[in-house]
Amino acid sequence: MAKTFQKPQALSSTPTHYCPGCTHGVIHRLVAETIDELAIRGRTVGIAPVGCAVLAYNYIDCDFQEAAHGRAPAMATGIKRVRPDLIVFTYQGDGDLASIGMGEIVHAANRGEKFTTIFVNNAIYGMTGGQMAPTTMPGQRTTTSPFGRKTAEVGMPIRVAELLGSLVTPAFITRQTVIRPKYIQKTKKAIRQAFTYQMENRCFSFVEVVSTCPTNWGMTPQEAIQWTEDVLLPYYPLGDVKTPPEEEPAHAK
């Protein structure tokens, strides 16, 4: 009997440390499947962030570097510039990418660095214990916004995909989610597209994945999915924010 579903080679057998209802496991799998399908495991370097996915290298089986908080895009730049033949991706959360690492991601995107970023946005700091993130929703309670996010004091949540999409340099910028099976297939397609653009040396590619954090949100996994649909997705709309022009941009030639 033919196997129709199996563990990707790029996914290790190590059980993850993620909480019940967390979407990191699904996203890891999609990345691993993509690496398998594109047959690039032997020349792929992942960069793990600081945050819940700090141990991503225990689950995705390819060369990996572990970054300092927020610096993954600078490290990816370093690797990709000196070894353009390698396939490089960063895997970052919203505290890592949108707060301490905002400078690095904006400049890497603006230079059009040819690597891929998987941006997991769950509107909260996970690993450090549920603190407020730049993506935390207005009124959302966290351990550092116990009375709810006060936008008069800390501003509105940052829509990173749209912010990066405003840069003039060509790029592939998309926002997806994995909270229901119908979305997972689209996310998979987006991740594969992102890696493909990199392999074609086309542009910087960025996949934001709106995710859940039931533990730090104080919800059951089901409630977390519902809250994502009711609250997060209206503010963080799904779909491509920007795609590179059909033909190669002149400055890339």
Binding site: V45, I47, Q65, A67, A68, R71, A74, M75, A76, T77, G78, I79, K80, R81, V82, R83, L86, G103, E104, H107
Partner: peptide, 13 residues
């Protein structure tokens, strides 16, 4: 800050 991590990435490669 960014430069020092570009160094890190490249050295790591």
């Amino acid at each position: 800050v960014a430069v020092s991590y570009m160094i890190f990435g490249a050295a790591g490669a």
